[in-house]
Every structure is written in C-alpha cells, then in structure tokens.
Computed example of a mutant assay.
Amino acid sequence: MKIGLFFGSFNPIHIGHLVIANTMAETTDLDQVWMIVSPQNPFKKQKNLLHEFDRYDMVQQAIADNAKLRVSDIEFHLPKPSYTIDTLTVIQERFAQHEFVLIMGSDNLRHFEKWKNHDKILKYFSLYVYPRPDSEATQWDNHPKVRWVAAPMMDISATFIRRCIEARQSIRYLVPDDVIAYIERKKFYQ
C-alpha cells in the first residue's frame, strides 16, 4: 500500500485537518492516510497542549467512519521532542511492505530547511504538499520528490478553536460533533 503520513498536534483535530486528510486519500494515489499524533512538536510550545492520549482519542472519534483514514500513536513511543526523520525511519522499518509519503502544508515547506535532516527526508520520501494561505515560493517547489495536490485552502486554526472554547463561543462546524461532545465532557480548553 501507498500511505500518506499526516503529522500534527491535533489540539484539537478540526474540519481543516479532516478535509486535507480526506482530500489526500480520495484524490491522489494514496491508499490510506495515517494521522500521526505528535506528543511534542519541536517548533511549538507545550502551553495548552492536551495530553497525547486525549488528542489521539479525539482523532480516533473524528475519523471512525472513514476506512481510508487511520490514527497512529507511534510517536508516543519515541524520544521527545519528535523529529519527523526519526519517525519516518521507524515507520519505514516497522512497515517495510508499504511505501510512505509525507503530507505537509505549503507553509511548512517554506521552513523545510530548518527540519532535522530535511535532505534525508527528501532523499527517501516524497512530499505531497497542499496549499496554505499566504504561502510563498520555496526552493523545493519544483523538486522531483515534491508533488503539489489541489486541495481546499483551509484557514482554520486549533488556536482559534481553543480561544472560542475559552470564551464559551460555539465551535460548531469547526470540529466534528463527536469531538465537541468529548471536549465538553472532559472540560478541555476552559
């Protein structure tokens, strides 16, 4: 199988994440998309980050009815912070029968040179890149391992959603109903 790996904090998972994951699964040559819940992104602060198991559970609930999407806790068992190259190496070793592709937004491609061993990522893996608002051209735009995927441009942020929850404002239509119920039940982000 050819599998796309979509990394994220998913704090919380929202419609933007789901639209991108589903678009990748339905409009490209990928058989599945695995959503990799990152316990700690080396480029993000830990503040307001829910426990990884809670974020994993929210992703699981959000994608439960889609056979082409899976959630993975593989980074929970790796040293922190999580570096993409290390996770990719472990996944490729553990699931050698599959071909893996890294899914990323064009905003991340702009800062790709800051990633640990970005040259090795490009040597061994293809990148499927989706558009993000206000993205600029990069040195990798025409790289043979970079494939641009036409996907809806989503400008929804988990930060905005957390602020809405904190202010007791509705997040309806931004987050799946099952995830809203989970957030309310656990009193997250309040």
Rank of each mutant, 00 (worst) to 15 (best):
Met35Arg: 02
Phe43Ile: 08
Val90Arg: 09
Asp141Trp: 09
Val179Lys: 02
Glu26Asp: 14
Ala25Met: 07
Lys145Phe: 12
Gln32Glu: 12
Ser82Gln: 09
Thr27Ser: 13
Gln190Pro: 05
Lys116Tyr: 10
Pro176Ala: 14
Val175Lys: 07
Phe43Gln: 03
Glu26Val: 06
Pro81His: 07
Ile171Asn: 08
Asp54Ala: 12
Thr23Ile: 11
Glu113Ser: 09
Val146Phe: 02
Phe100Gln: 01
Trp115Asn: 01
Asp86Ser: 02
Ala158Phe: 01
Leu127Ala: 00
Lys186Cys: 12
Asn22Glu: 15
Phe10Glu: 03
Pro176Tyr: 12
Gln46Asn: 10
Ile74Gly: 03
Met58Phe: 09
Asp141His: 00
Gln60Cys: 11
Gln139Arg: 15
Met104Trp: 00
Val101Cys: 09
Ala64Phe: 08
Thr27Gly: 05
Lys187Met: 13
Leu174Met: 15
Ala67Pro: 02
Asn66Val: 09
Phe112Ile: 04
Lys114Trp: 13
Glu93Cys: 10
His51Arg: 06
Gln40Ala: 10
Ile13Met: 12
Phe188Tyr: 15
Leu109His: 00
His17Pro: 03
Trp34Gly: 00
His118Arg: 05
Leu174Tyr: 14
Ser72Glu: 10
Leu49Ile: 14
Ile180Thr: 11
Ala64Cys: 08
Asn41Met: 06
Pro12Ala: 10
Glu75Pro: 02
Asn22Trp: 08
Glu136Thr: 11
Pro39Asp: 04
Ile91Asp: 00
Ile156Ser: 07
Phe188Leu: 15
Gln61Met: 15
Ala96Lys: 14
Asp73Glu: 03
Glu75Asn: 10
Glu75Gly: 01
Gln92Cys: 03
Asn41Val: 06
Pro133Asp: 04
Asn117Gly: 05
Ala150Thr: 04
Leu102Trp: 06
Thr89Val: 06
Tyr128Gly: 03
Asn41Tyr: 03
Thr27Trp: 08
Leu18Pro: 04
Lys123His: 15
Phe112Asp: 03
Val90Gln: 09
Asp107Tyr: 00
Pro152Tyr: 13
Leu30Ile: 11
Asp54Leu: 13
His98Ser: 14
Glu75Ala: 06
Trp140Lys: 00
Glu166Trp: 10
His17Met: 04
Gln92Trp: 01
Asp65Pro: 05
Val179Gly: 04
His51Tyr: 06
Tyr83Leu: 05
Glu184Trp: 14
Thr27Phe: 10
Trp115Thr: 01
Arg147Met: 09
Thr89Ile: 06
Lys80Ala: 14
Gln46Val: 08
His17Phe: 05
Met58Val: 08
Thr27Asp: 08
Met104Cys: 10
Asn48Trp: 08
Val175His: 06
Gln46Asp: 08
Asp107Glu: 00
Asn41Glu: 08
Arg55Tyr: 00
Ser72His: 12
Leu69Pro: 04
Ser38Asn: 12
Asp57Thr: 11
Ile13Leu: 05
Glu75Cys: 01
Tyr128Asn: 07
Phe95Asn: 10
Asp134Arg: 14
Arg94Leu: 11
Asn41Gly: 06
Trp140Ser: 03
Ile121Leu: 13
Asn11Glu: 10
Arg147Val: 11
